[in-house]
Amino acid sequence: DDVELRDGDWRVELKDADEEILRAVEEAIKNGASEQELRELAERLIR
Score class of each variant (00 low, 15 high):
D9L: 04
G32A: 01
L14T: 02
L41V: 01
I29A: 12
K15N: 07
E26N: 05
D1K: 13
R6K: 08
A42K: 05
D1Y: 12
S34G: 06
E13H: 15
V25E: 00
L5G: 12
A28F: 06
I21F: 05
Q36L: 10
E13I: 15
E35A: 11
E43T: 14
D7F: 08
D16L: 11
D7Q: 07
L22H: 07
L38A: 14
R11Y: 12
D2V: 11
A24G: 01
N31T: 06
Q36F: 09
E40C: 06
V3M: 12
S34W: 01
E40T: 12
A42G: 02
L41C: 00
I29G: 06
W10F: 05
D7P: 07
E40K: 11
R6N: 14
W10M: 03
L22S: 03
R23C: 05
K15Y: 09
D1T: 05
L41A: 00
L14M: 06
K30A: 13
E20C: 07
D18Q: 08
V25P: 00
I46N: 03
E27V: 09
D1C: 06
D2S: 13
E43A: 15
W10C: 02
E27Q: 10
D16P: 03
A24L: 12
I21G: 01
E26V: 10
R47E: 07
L14H: 02
L14P: 01
L22P: 00
L22I: 10
I21S: 03
E4N: 10
N31S: 10
E13K: 15
D18P: 15
Q36K: 10
D16S: 08
R47T: 09
V12R: 11
E43R: 15
E4S: 10
E19R: 09
R23H: 06
V3K: 12
L38P: 00
Q36A: 13
E4C: 05
L5M: 12
N31G: 08
V25H: 00
A17L: 09
G8Q: 06
A42Q: 03
E13G: 12
A42W: 15
A28K: 01
Q36G: 05
A24F: 09
A17E: 04
D7S: 05
A17Q: 07
E27D: 06
R11T: 04
E37Q: 09
A42D: 00
K15L: 14
E43V: 13
L38V: 12
L5D: 10
V3G: 13
E20K: 10
E43S: 14
L14F: 10
W10I: 05
E27H: 07
A28V: 01
E13A: 14
E19D: 11
L14I: 07
E27Y: 14
V12C: 03
A17G: 04
R11P: 05
E37C: 04
K30I: 07
E40V: 11
G32T: 00
A24Y: 08
E20R: 14
I29V: 10
Q36H: 08
D16Y: 15
D7R: 05
E4I: 12
I46H: 04
I29T: 07
S34C: 01
A24I: 15
E13S: 14
R47A: 04
R6W: 15
G8E: 12
R6E: 11
R39N: 03
R11D: 03
V3Q: 10
E35G: 04
R23S: 06
A24K: 12
G8W: 15
D2N: 14
G8K: 13
K15T: 07
R6G: 14
L38S: 02
Q36I: 11
L14D: 02
K30F: 10
N31F: 07
E26I: 09
D7C: 06
G8T: 13
G8A: 10
E19L: 06
I46T: 08
R47H: 12
K30V: 07
R6A: 11
R11L: 11
A17Y: 11
D2F: 11
G8P: 12
E35S: 08
L14R: 01
I46G: 04
D16A: 08
I46R: 13
E43I: 15
S34A: 03
D16R: 09
L22R: 11
E35Q: 04
D7V: 08
L45F: 03
R23T: 03
V12T: 08
R39F: 05
K30H: 07
E26F: 15
E4V: 04
A33G: 02
W10A: 03
V12P: 05
Q36W: 14
D7G: 10
E19V: 13
D9V: 03
D16F: 13
R23G: 02
E43K: 15
G8V: 07
V3A: 07
R44Y: 10
G8Y: 14
E13C: 15
A28G: 02
V3H: 11
K15G: 04
L14C: 02
R44M: 09
L5A: 09
E19H: 09
D16C: 15
R44L: 06
G32L: 02
E37M: 08
R11I: 08
L45C: 02
D9W: 14
R6D: 13
E40H: 07
E13V: 15
L41R: 00
I46C: 03
R23L: 08
L5F: 14
L41Y: 02
L5V: 12
I46F: 14
L14E: 01
D16N: 12
L14K: 01
L41K: 00
R11S: 06
A17C: 03
E40Y: 10
K15E: 11
R47P: 04
D16H: 12
G8D: 07
L45K: 01
R6V: 07
A24R: 10
D7H: 04
E27T: 06
D18F: 07
L14A: 01
R6Y: 11
E20N: 13
I29H: 09
V12K: 11
E35I: 09
D18A: 07
E37Y: 08
S34I: 02
Q36R: 10
L22K: 09
L38E: 00
G8H: 09
E20Q: 12
D9Y: 07
W10T: 02
A42N: 01
I21T: 09
G32R: 02
E35N: 06
E43W: 15
N31D: 05
E43M: 15
I29W: 15
I21L: 07
S34Q: 03
Q36V: 09
W10K: 02
E37R: 02
V3F: 10
G32S: 01
I21A: 03
V12F: 04
A24E: 09
R44N: 06
L45V: 03
A42I: 15
A42S: 05
D9A: 08
A33S: 05
A33R: 04
V12L: 12
E43Y: 14
N31E: 06
E20S: 13
R44D: 04
R47K: 12
W10Q: 02
R23K: 13
L41E: 00
